[in-house]
Design a protein around this nucleic acid. Structure first.
Lengths: 225, 225
DNA sequence: CACGCTCTAATTTGATCATATTCTTGGTCA
DNA sequence: TGACCAAGAATATGATCAAATTAGAGCGTG
């Protein structure tokens, strides 16, 4: 009868430890968005089991989720790899991002509070610092954070999920491009988005978002040669 | 020598039996789209294990995929259920369906072949028969088939995946509505889509698709009271 | 004689299952 | 009413089976 656990865990556990498969999922997801996994790279279950020190079942479940997300690809035989985008994929992603994320920007504008704007400004400041210091990984994280936080404001979980899915698909390619070009050439469209939020002008926000999306996807397109 | 399998199995096995988790996934997916699972219904792993006669691991993986698809919902504690749509969800689904599926209709129109139109007409005929005979399940299947086949023509896998995801989310609710109202009140917009395909007019196809989507989603909206 | 091809064996990896552990829940008793 | 307890379900592990890729040896040919 060890009291180490039962203590105060009855009514409300403040942070009921996340299941292993969730932790594994978030870890791999982060690696795909920001980190080690590059387009075309093969992903093995047993490799992840050893790398993450997790069991086999949680890793398998996480991989299934990521395949469903479009973040990983099931290669017909039993191989799994990070997808490589072609021109056609990119055109589709551009269309989807523009329609979905512009709408999220509109919805967010209608509901935004001053405190929300402050939080986004803080992220944008961190983003600027990452750019000026050439911190590619930091840039990617802050950029993703900015969009994610903005979309949370829209109170539109279904559209936000769709946007997340899209980010997982172009994330690896964006990382490769940024790794090649560095952070020097990013005019910051987020200032325009923030200005639109302050004015509470949905169409202006959508326009700024469209430019931001176009710019980011252009980077990737150039990276494809 | 039976040529069913061994023939030419060196280079490319034509139908190398799908893994169990794939089979289970497709089965549950079908049940969500057309069948037994209603919005709000609880789904247990062990229940599916017994119902499908499958092992536990494949069922778990299939459920993770379906949760990622938005077809099932993870209820915080370890419970899983079929999501219930509210008004806000429906508004988002309508926007996403219109933008994604209209674009798919445009792309399909640009690439459609006469044989493709014939195949779609055959599906539409079967759909009409299902409507006139009051076969709700048949209507749902043929309707889904019509859209899926059309989207395959667009040669846009990323957008098609997004559309599939959306269908999985409103599928259960559509089924409930159809079960209540029967099949009598469905003016068939597919004829307009087929006409646009024959004329190779992308914008006309997009318009017809928008009407079809609006009509279907309207049914669900009325079902929500 | 050397180069290349194919068939086979071994290793690596994925798929599945049986089982132990942990957590939620509903009932029961003080 | 509140807390404890038991039952059932989900999570997680490791082992086992099956499939596929790779490496290597043997054979044939230029």
């Amino acid at each position: 009868m060890n009291s180490s656990q039962s203590d105060a865990s009855n009514v409300a556990t403040p942070a009921a430890k996340p299941p292993a498969h969730e932790t594994v999922y978030q870890t791999i997801r982060g690696q795909i968005l920001f980190g080690e996994l590059a387009p075309g790279q093969a992903v093995t279950i047993q490799g992840l089991v050893e790398a993450l020190g997790a069991g086999m079942t949680p890793v398998r479940e996480a991989i299934r989720r990521l395949i469903s997300d479009g973040a990983l690809m099931f290669q017909g035989n039993r191989r799994v790899s990070v997808p490589v985008l072609d021109k056609n994929d990119l055109v589709q992603l551009i269309y989807a991002r523009k329609t979905i994320e512009c709408q999220l920007a509109r919805l967010a504008t209608e509901q935004v509070q001053p405190s929300d704007i402050s939080a986004l400004e803080a992220i944008d400041t961190a983003l600027d610092q990452a750019i000026s210091s050439g911190d590619v990984a930091g840039y990617l994280v802050q950029n993703y954070q900015f969009h994610t936080r903005l979309y949370e404001l829209a109170n539109a979980p279904i559209l936000s999920d769709l946007a997340d899915r899209l980010w997982l698909q172009f994330g690896p390619s964006l990382r490769v491009v940024c790794g090649r070009l560095g952070t020097q050439s990013f005019p910051d469209r987020h200032k325009d988005i923030l200005e639109a939020l302050r004015r509470k002008d949905p169409e202006l926000a959508a326009l700024a978002m469209e430019r931001d999306v176009a710019q980011g996807m252009d980077q990737i397109a150039q990276g494809l040669e």
